[in-house]
């Protein structure tokens, strides 16, 4: 098999496996839409390549590519280099996301951590701080889900079954595009979110 075909072939099964997460994705979207509906904001975070995913997710929500979709409040905790280096130098790198969440987030918000192997200490600490404050916690993970899946700090988890961080990332991109789209589907159905229907 030519090398390019080998590279692409490794994507097939994990790409298809996202369909198996349809239930988790639907529940996650419903919970996220509920938070946005009540004024919650989304905070995203991750390391390395996943830091760029955190920023991609935030821009997706703040400035949708599909014309006519409303802007939703989302912020990546990876973009402020002064804060990242400041907290990292003073309290240690494991604290960089948790610190920002403790001092910027509110209980009605959403924390979404991305970790392709599930073993990022700062993502784990961020999700833990968020859960302790009452935020909705979502994790995009890969491999066996690592410490983050084992810890149970994320109320909603999507684990991509691949040990290649690049393959995991590709499925994550589809997963968060779908999350974004379906959050809007649910937000446009006020009947399924409006506290008014819950009597």
């Amino acid at each position: 098999m030519p090398p390019t075909e080998r590279v692409f072939a490794r994507r097939e099964a994990p790409g298809r496996a996202l369909a198996a997460h349809a239930e988790v994705i639907a529940e996650t979207c419903h919970a996220m839409a509920g938070r946005f509906h009540r004024g919650g904001r989304l905070f995203t975070f991750g390391n390395g390549g996943a830091a760029t995913d955190a920023q991609h997710i935030a821009v997706e929500f703040v400035h949708p590519v599909i014309v006519g979709k409303r802007a939703l409040p989302a912020l990546s905790l990876t973009g402020d280099v002064a804060t990242l280096t400041g907290v990292g130098a003073a309290a240690g790198f494991a604290e960089v996301f948790a610190h920002q969440l403790r001092h910027f987030a509110a209980p009605e918000d959403i924390a979404l951590g991305v970790s392709p192997d599930g073993r990022c200490a700062d993502v784990l600490a961020g999700l833990r701080a968020a859960r302790d404050m009452g935020l909705l916690t979502v994790a995009l993970l890969g491999g066996d889900g690592g410490d983050i899946a084992a810890s149970g700090v994320a109320g909603h988890r999507i684990v991509v079954p691949s040990d290649d961080p690049r393959v995991v990332k590709e499925v994550h991109v589809t997963a968060y595009h779908v999350l974004w789209e379906l959050v809007h589907v649910l937000l446009e159905q006020p009947g399924v979110l409006d506290p008014g229907v819950i009597a």
Binding site: R11, G15, R16, L18, A19, A22, T174, H177, L182, L186
Partner: peptide, 16 residues
Amino acid sequence: VRRSTAEKAEEIVALR
């Protein structure tokens, strides 16, 4: 919502 997720997974596999 569940159906849409499954469709999109198929779409990207085919596009690749």
